[in-house]
Design a protein around this nucleic acid. Structure first.
Length: 936
DNA sequence: CCTGTCACG
DNA sequence: GACGTACGTGACAGGG
């Protein structure tokens, strides 16, 4: 190989900085500082910047580096977890106020104009090892700035370590002093001694001292293990023989990988001076007064103004933003213009993104254009697949409209930006855009989502759609979709919209999204829901996207056969009903049915609602069934009609022709409590309670060679109630694995468990549910169909027996009245403004306030499980398909069922930890089968 | 578009 | 003392 003239080589000196080490030192060295303007935690960033500054200042003289790089860990799964799933398993979770600071330390590094590297699937140590090896081979010098002893194996041949805090250099001798062996044998000692911090097992009972002794005696680990029988000390001998596999595994875990696949070379790491404007801009943004001033002086630049006045709510927040003007947006038609936008995005570090498509079903529609915004008022639209006008009348041409970039070329330019880990993509309902772009080969990350931010802030106060948010927070009504596409029969798709109108509409969406983000994002910290957003909302979106795109297989023939059978039965029932009524009428019309029942037939109990129509709900018809045959027939007809229209017919329409599967959409912000909702189709209300309905689940099947597995939390809400209301007897019943409804019945009605009857248990079960819903005598009476006084007696006895529950309810309502919101155990806020109302509305709000922390905590727990699930089952050929509030449905290769159940159950049962330790165990039941009916 | 009804947790 | 009441959802049909 020939020497390039400016390449890294002899005379060069590479500094490799362990970024994570810097961050943790900075975090622990400083008090929990917050940024003055918005309260964001900033202590670790401050310490990190000071350390970088001190480091840069010290880089003078003959020891100064020619090349430098800060290396970070990329969170998540590494190849070591594939070797040993417990690797680093007893690491404590990252402190919640540190997590949001990590991306800022990356930005800080870049602001100092120092190369900043990380790699998915590898630890920082491996990247450092690879770079150190490359530099050593090239004949250069290397200094690793870290105090991590794992890196000592790299020392030697021009590689040294530097503990920046103690300012101690560690060379060959230093390593020997620490490990008792030279760097080349450090891994052998570590393999034997293990490491409790990283959870490397090693050989039990052997520490560094003994390990070094053994290695020095036998030369290396392999020789030692091959000759283990010859060791004199019986205990040591036995340990080495018994644990050989574990020791060999440990060596693989501690051995750093010098061949990580890097997409850059040493030459990319050359030392560069910081750009004063960029660095000072960043420091000012962080509101570091002292450091900004000092560096401005050193660089001979003007210190930027720091505005750290705490932002006031409402109008003052964004005082001088340009008005939203759709005429100012730019249409991007060529690569040069797009390149200019990309450069602006890279400068900014973030961009609002919106995609325009031919419809709403992300699994079917085509991408039509992409909108970007970098600053308020600075937005563009990139049309990519608009159809040319022309053709006759409604028939549009198949040709593309002129003035558009080729779709492939535009995506090729945008992909690196959309996937760049250092550029934040901002969207409104980003899951939608991410799914679309995923189908075009682009994995959008990282991202923020204004819809999710709004939900974390204001669940219960208002909805979180863009139009509503824009009107509320920006005082601006965006161009209505209707205006652009029309509605009803004459509605057109976006690809038929003229380019100028599409630009106004699309770019406006991106502009509005960016402005919303600027208004809402800072509020997360102020409202103390940043953790909710960052741990329960944002990371769930990609998990849901994955589930939705995978879908579940649904068998059309099964549904079709059932539809036919239902139709036949309904026709028979309809004839009977008309016969009984003495005339034909529309059985499906509650209005006509009410008139038949109560006017023509004069049955008792006719009550008119507010619209003047008779009520004909199931409860009323059930009461009437004792009087006449007709109501019972109508109930049967309604049951079949429901199953047919909502399930056996409608589900067939939702089978995707390409995949043969049904792809639901989960709405993360639909339910105020933190629950998900599911649409198109709703997979969370597939029948299960009636035998006939349950058969619909037989149509939800596993693919060839696979099995459906269902895992569901047992009684999760009652367990949470026992915890939050601190009911010892309930907690104990759960610890003992008792039937909780029977136990409740026993407590409340004084019936010994061995004399329990199904009827008494049923009543206790109704009370238990009632409690969760904010019980009332009226409600329980109606549910159990017993006199109200009797129901009230049950409730009184229940509260007498469990006084803690009444206290919980009273305290929760009082909290709600004081704050106008209630909270889950994980800090999710559910606003309950109506609790201050007078009249019946307050009653609703009170019951909702009692229920919300319980239902919401359960929702948070399964969210945590879902977020952790992809990593937990990464080694198992399985996919998570569905969530039904307390149930997760998976599809797994035959043979791997038990492995999946073990892994998924573990995640679900421990999902509250470590944030919350419940006083009751969470229990997960599992089932499996060829279809959902069998698995559930 | 609203209401009633009914499917689920 | 009367009022109206179980909590959280989504889909469909009928009818204005």
């Amino acid at each position: 190989m020939s020497e390039t003239k400016s390449g890294f080589g002899k005379g060069c000196h590479l500094h490799l900085i362990d970024g994570s080490g810097f961050i943790f030192r900075a975090y622990h060295a400083l008090p929990p500082l917050t940024r003055k303007s918005d309260g964001a935690p900033i202590g670790a960033v401050s310490g990190f910047c000071n350390m970088l500054h001190r480091y840069v200042e010290g880089n003078t003289g003959p020891d100064a580096p020619t090349h430098v790089c800060v290396v970070f860990d990329k969170s998540g799964h590494t190849f070591r977890n594939d070797l040993y799933d417990l690797y680093k398993a007893n690491r404590e979770a990252m402190p919640e106020d540190l997590r949001p600071q990590i991306p800022l330390t990356r930005r800080a590094t870049e602001a100092f104009n120092i190369a900043c590297k990380e790699l998915q699937g590898y630890e920082a140590d491996d990247i450092i090892a690879t770079l150190a090896c490359q530099a050593r081979e090239a004949g250069g010098r290397v200094t690793i700035i870290s105090s991590d002893k794992d890196l000592m194996q790299l020392v030697g041949g021009g590689v040294e370590m530097l503990d920046a805090m103690k300012n101690v250099r560690i060379d060959h001798e230093g390593v020997e002093a620490k490990f008792g062996v030279g760097p080349e044998r450090v891994v052998d000692v570590q393999a034997l001694a293990g490491d409790s911090v990283d959870n490397v097992p090693g050989a039990p009972g052997i520490g560094i001292k003994t390990a070094a002794l053994l290695i020095n005696e036998w030369g290396d680990l392999e020789t030692l293990l091959d000759n283990a029988e010859k060791i004199k000390q019986p205990k040591r001998r036995q340990t080495l023989i018994d644990n050989r596999a574990q020791i060999e595994l440990s060596k693989k875990l501690v051995q750093l990988d010098c061949n990580t696949p890097l997409d850059f070379t040493l030459d990319d790491l050359e030392v560069r001076d910081p750009e004063p404007e960029v660095l000072l801009g960043f420091l000012a943004e962080m509101e570091f007064r002292t450091l900004t001033k000092r560096l401005a002086e050193q660089m001979g630049a003007a210190a930027p103004e720091i505005d750290d006045t705490p932002s006031q709510p409402a109008a003052q927040e964004a005082p001088e933003q340009p008005a939203i003007d759709t005429a100012s947006y730019q249409m991007v038609s060529d690569a040069e213009t797009l390149q200019a936008w990309i450069e602006r995005i890279r400068e900014r570090g973030y961009v609002a993104v919106d995609t325009e498509t031919t419809g709403l079903d992300e699994m079917v529609v085509d991408l039509v254009g992409i909108c970007l915004a970098t600053d308020p008022g600075q937005a563009c639209y990139i049309p990519l697949a608009h159809k040319a006008e022309g053709g006759e009348g409604l028939f549009a041409s198949d040709d593309l409209a002129p003035g558009q970039m080729p779709l492939d070329a535009a995506l090729k330019m945008l992909k690196p930006v959309l996937e760049d880990g250092s550029i934040l993509k901002i969207g409104q309902n980003m899951k939608y855009d991410a799914k679309i772009l995923k189908r075009y080969g682009i994995d959008v990350a990282p991202f923020d989502d204004t819809m999710l931010i709004s939900y974390a802030l204001n669940a219960g106060l208002h909805t979180h759609g863009m139009d509503a948010l824009s009107e509320r927070y920006l005082g601006h009504v965006p161009i209505p979709t209707k205006e652009l596409l029309g509605s009803g029969k004459s509605q057109i798709t976006f690809d038929l919209v003229p380019l100028d109108k599409a630009t106004a509409y699309g770019a406006e969406d991106a502009d509005v999204t960016l402005r919303l983000w600027q208004v809402l994002k800072p509020r997360l910290h102020r409202e103390k829901v940043a953790t909710v957003y960052e741990t329960l909302e944002r990371p769930l979106a990609p998990v849901l996207a994955e589930m939705e795109m995978h879908g579940i297989k649904v068998d059309r023939d099964t549904l079709s056969r059932m539809s036919n059978a239902f139709a036949q039965k309904m026709a028979g029932l309809e004839a009977e009903i008309h016969e009984l009524a003495g005339e034909t009428f529309n059985v499906g019309s509650p209005k006509q049915l009410g008139e038949i029942l109560f006017d023509k037939m004069s049955l008792p109990g006719g009550k008119k609602g507010k619209t003047g129509a008779y009520a004909t709900g199931a409860d009323i018809l059930e009461d009437l069934a004792t009087e006449h045959e007709l109501p019972g027939r109508v109930l049967d007809w309604r049951a079949l009609s429901k199953l047919k229209s909502t399930y056996t017919d409608a589900l067939q329409e939702h089978i995707n022709p390409d995949t043969g599967r049904v792809h639901t959409s989960y709405l993360q912000t639909g339910a105020n409590t933190g629950r998900l909702s599911s649409t198109d189709p709703n997979v969370q209300n597939i029948p299960v309670r009636s035998e006939e309905g349950r058969r619909i689940r037989e149509a939800f099947i596993a693919d060839q060679g696979k099995t459906l597995v269902s895992l569901d939390y047992s009684q999760i809400e009652l367990r949470i109630l026992a915890h939050v209301a601190r009911i010892d007897s309930l907690k104990q019943a759960f610890h003992e694995g008792q039937d909780i409804h029977a136990a409740t019945a026993s407590e409340v009605f004084g019936v010994p468990l061995d004399q329990m009857t199904p009827e008494i248990r049923r009543q206790a079960k109704a009370i238990n549910f009632g409690v969760i819903y904010g019980i009332s005598g009226f409600g329980l009476a109606r549910n159990l169909r017993i006199p109200r006084a009797e129901a009230q007696g049950f409730i009184d006895r229940y509260f007498e027996r469990f006084p803690g529950i009444r206290e919980y309810m009273d305290q929760t309502v009082a909290f709600g009245q004081e704050h106008l919101f209630v909270q889950t155990l994980f800090g999710r806020k559910i606003h309950t403004p109506e609790i201050a109302a007078k009249g019946p509305r307050a009653g609703f709000a009170k019951r909702a306030a009692i229920n919300a922390p319980i239902q919401g905590t359960a929702a948070d727990i399964i969210r945590r499980a879902m977020i952790r699930m992809p990593e937990a089952i990464a080694g198992i050929p399985a996919k998570m398909l569905l969530q039904v509030h307390d149930e997760l449905v998976f599809e797994v290769d035959k043979g791997a069922e038990e492995a999946l159940i073990k892994a998924a159950r573990d995640v679900m049962e421990n999902a509250a930890e470590p944030a919350i330790h419940l006083d009751v165990p969470l229990v997960v039941d599992a089932g499996q089968g060829a279809n959902w009916a069998e698995a559930h």
